[in-house]
Write a protein that binds this DNA or RNA. Sequence first.
DNA 1: CACGATTGAGTTGTGCACAACTCAATCGCA
DNA 2: TGCGATTGAGTTGTGCACAACTCAATCGTG
Lengths: 146, 146
Amino acid sequence: MSTEYLRLDQQICFALHAASRAFGNVYRVVLRDLGLTYPQYLVLLVLWEHGELPVKRIGELLRLDSGTLSPLLKRLETAGLVDRRRSADDERSVTVSLTEAGLALRERAELIPRRIAEATGLPPADVVELRDRLARLTAALDAAAP
Amino acid sequence: MSTEYLRLDQQICFALHAASRAFGNVYRVVLRDLGLTYPQYLVLLVLWEHGELPVKRIGELLRLDSGTLSPLLKRLETAGLVDRRRSADDERSVTVSLTEAGLALRERAELIPRRIAEATGLPPADVVELRDRLARLTAALDAAAP
DNA sequence: CACGATTGAGTTGTGCACAACTCAATCGCA
DNA sequence: TGCGATTGAGTTGTGCACAACTCAATCGTG
């Protein structure tokens, strides 16, 4: 019984890991046309929403550190989708903004959410509930990780 | 309304991605003592359960291909935790088995599940439900990804 | 039996994630 | 004001994940 109980967390963690990778596969297929990876798409999503953001803020929104973001943003810059410039009032900070091409990509990206939603096969209510459960779980795990 | 709906899948996917990484952080801390990464721990879990397995079967159980498993297993072999040998009746197949050290590690690993379970802050019933939802989601996504 | 197709591991190359680190800019307080 | 601490980006190194590929072993069908 204790053993039974102890196995559950392994299963939940593995289920999470597997679901996350399965989502990655679906996004990979859908994003191939746009030449984007899923994390790159996430960065563009926050930029489409906010216009421009410092690297620091992007990291907070997406839960990513500079070790991940710096090379990723460099690739987006090379692809001509974003610009990076040092902030005038704090030379430590770098502001990321969309280029014309980056802005234009938004229209093509607007077809994506529906395709993903269809792939999940879930009704919106279930999606909302699952999302909230996962958010609570993430918060609990963040609190537990020192 | 349509817009509202279309955002949900992004949120569920991001929530999943974030939760998976948050779990990774917790496991990283807990597994540091054992010198293991989370995927390496998963491999040992299936070996502890089954004794020995062909690489192919490990890949099916963990949803990983040889491009991921081959170097991972090589690291576990270098660490002295597993052995690899070509199967006698099918020379293409490689059988992975635990060494004494790999077997012995199980005892130290048995403390881990409880620590993880505590970190989630979830009652067992919630864990079961979430696990099942995620499993169904993964199945739906797998069916959608060609 | 022979030979083309398939299968199982492994390799190579790209990108993400994170730890540990560097370095310059900024902050804050004695 | 001056200087030690902190902050924001970036770099380096390790490992996972996956695509695309190689290669040998095995299978299956004529």
